[in-house]
Amino acid sequence: MKTRTKKIIGWSVVALVVVGLIVGIILTDGLYTSTEDISEVMKDAVLHEENQVDIFGFKANPGLVSAYIVTLILLVAAALIRIFAIPKFKAVPGKFQLVAESIVGWFDRLAKTNSPHRNSFLGAYIFGAGCYIFAGTLFELVGAAAVSAAGNAVVLPAPLSDINGAIAMGFLSYLVILSGGIVSNGLRGVGRTLKDFSLPISMSFRLFGALLSGLLVSELVYYYIALSFVLPVIVGVLFTLLHALIQTYVLVMLTSLFYGEVSEPYGKVPKAKKKKARAAREKQ
C-alpha cells in the first residue's frame, strides 16, 4: 500500500514538472527574440565569417579553437593514462586496460590488414586521426561557449565542421599516403599516389559535409526553442555518436586502404604465379 502511494506521488510530480515546463515554454516563447535570421545563422555555421574568435589578436574560426581544445583534452587524457594507468597494466587485463588495448589493437590490425608491407607509421597515424575525429565530433555535444570578436556568444562546433579543419585533415591524410608511396616505391609510389589526385578533396569534403550536415541540423533544431526538448536527444546525441563512429571509420579505412595500395612493393609477377594466385582466389 505504501509503495503504491509512493509511486502515485512520484508519477504525479513528474507529470506536474512536464506540464510546468510546457506552460513555461509557451509563455516564454514570445520573449525570445533572436537577433539573427535562421538563414544567417546557418550561413555563419558554414562560413564563420561573422562569429570569429579572437585568439591573441588573431581572428580564427571557432572550429580552430575547438580543434586546439580537443587536442589539449586528448593529450592530457593520454598523459594521465600514460602516467597512472599504463604502468599498472597486467598480463590479464582489467576493464580499462581492455578498452585501451582494444582501441590500439583495432587500429593496429586495420593498418596491418590493409597495408601488410608497411604499417607501423600508418597505425600511429590512423590511431591519432581516429581519436581526433571521434573526440572532435563528440566535442559538439559538450556545447562549450566562447565569445566571438563581435561580442556574441558562440557555441564551439566540432573542429571538422570547419572547412579549414576538414581540408587540413584530408590533405594530411593524402600526404601520409604519399609518404608511404615514396618510402616504399620512390617515384613510382609518387605516381601511384598522384593518380588519385582527387583523394584529398574527396576526403576533406566528405568529412566537412558529413559534420556540417550534423551541425546545420543541430542549429536548425536549437534555433526554435520549442524544438529544444526531447528532439536534441535524437538529433544531437544519437546522430553525433553515429557520426563520430562512421566518420572515424571511413577516414581511417580510406587512408589505410590507399596507403596499402601505394606502399605495395612493385614487382612484375610471373605469369605462372599470377595464374596460381588467380586459381587460389577462385578456389577461395
Binding site: 580543434a67 593514462i81 600514460r82 587500429f107 591519432g128 579549414n164 587540413a168
Partner: peptide, 21 residues
Amino acid sequence: QILLHLLNLVILIVGLYLLLY
C-alpha cells in the same frame, strides 16, 4: 588556419603516438 589545423594535428598525432599508442 589550415596550417594551424595541420600543426594541431601533427602535435596531436605525435603526442598520442608517444603517450598512448
